[in-house]
Design a protein around this nucleic acid. Sequence first.
DNA 1: TGCCACCCAGGACATTTGTCACCGTCGGAT
DNA 2: ATCCGACGGTGACAAATGTCCTGGGTGGCA
Lengths: 229, 229
Amino acid sequence: MTSAPRARAVRPTLSGVNEMPRDHRPVKSIRVLLAEDQGMMRGALALLLGMEPDIEVVAQVGRGDEIVERALVARPDVALLDIELPGRSGLDAAAELRDEVPDCRVLILTTFGRPGYLRRAMEAGAAGFLVKDGPVEELAEAVRTVLRGETVIDPALAAAALGAGPNPLTAREREALSAAVDGATIADIAGRLRLSESTVRNYLSSAIGKTGTRNRLEAARAARQQGWL
Amino acid sequence: MTSAPRARAVRPTLSGVNEMPRDHRPVKSIRVLLAEDQGMMRGALALLLGMEPDIEVVAQVGRGDEIVERALVARPDVALLDIELPGRSGLDAAAELRDEVPDCRVLILTTFGRPGYLRRAMEAGAAGFLVKDGPVEELAEAVRTVLRGETVIDPALAAAALGAGPNPLTAREREALSAAVDGATIADIAGRLRLSESTVRNYLSSAIGKTGTRNRLEAARAARQQGWL
DNA sequence: TGCCACCCAGGACATTTGTCACCGTCGGAT
DNA sequence: ATCCGACGGTGACAAATGTCCTGGGTGGCA
């Protein structure tokens, strides 16, 4: 819905490459970095993108903390980033990419379309936000769209993100909630955060109130659901 | 249950396109059903498998409760099933496939290599068990392997599955634990399971003891980790 | 037949958790 | 200068949770 079905013509602008594949090797004008932790997904996406006549996957990483360093070397035009990655969040990496490799457009590709994720992606300077549902055909087209300088977002998701207000949780409340998800006890959280147990309980209670839930588990799930984590 | 898998046509030698029957389509000897909930993953895998000269994806489903009905119509040689699917578990569907479509070999493709998953997959009559890490190249080869009647399992995972004993939780303990994961209170669980609160507490306490954990959250996570859920 | 595991339930009890009131400090905004 | 919010903490209290013990019913198995 976002972008009209585009004519198949190759993009003449930007890097100034004259293309039109004429010989054996077609000209690949769009350089893509792909960050995705699931090996099979990563490989499949890389192969698919590589089949497009105008797209070349110049780097693949499986960890979030490898994104920036690889981007500095590979100099991609578009970085296709998952959010939940080992080592570092794709959103954090996106923010640093904006400073370190400003010519590189960021396209977030994530499993869940959480409103808070979209909001944070935009704040991190992302040019697009795709969910892993939806057809594969979207993908290559989205890459071309962001390269043109346009923004690609699922309209329904955009509406949801606007409808839900911003994150009401303070930094400490987020930390306490995050530390509580895996069944940790109050004493555990207090130890991990170097806080008094009373303080932890107060933060959790506050988070429970703000999320309108009944206990820290529901609060954590609700917050995660919103992308507030 | 061992009727020869449909001696269909010849084995295509290489990527040669010379064996076109009469219409302009290459011979496809292996019919595959693909069950995977993530749209992009499903599409990517379907395209990749379809590029293999000897593999044809004859059905794609995104829900677990559509697997059997589609298999009855499409008559695939191999069913490639994710485990965690909406509507119905891929493991359940595998068990029913063994009875309803006995000629169809089941290849489980899952995100996490939990020992209990592997065990249950084998009990459900699966011919193979792949994790979504690992390279994409594994996939097509695994499809061919199971069709030959062989079994494909990651050796390290097989060892882990044998090391860990069988599921020590009773049916009710599993249900109580499953109902507890999303922050439900004892009263909620009791209502959902039509049990007394006392009984629920006893089951949860028992599950906590068997998993060697400190509360129901840790117990649920530990059980899920083992594939006991 | 007894034994055993599972199912279901209740009561007593200690611990954990959640709520509330209140106390300070600090930094930024008005 | 004052207000406000986030931060960190204490103490008291009620509710929820986890543990242990008791009991009864069922069905499979030796």
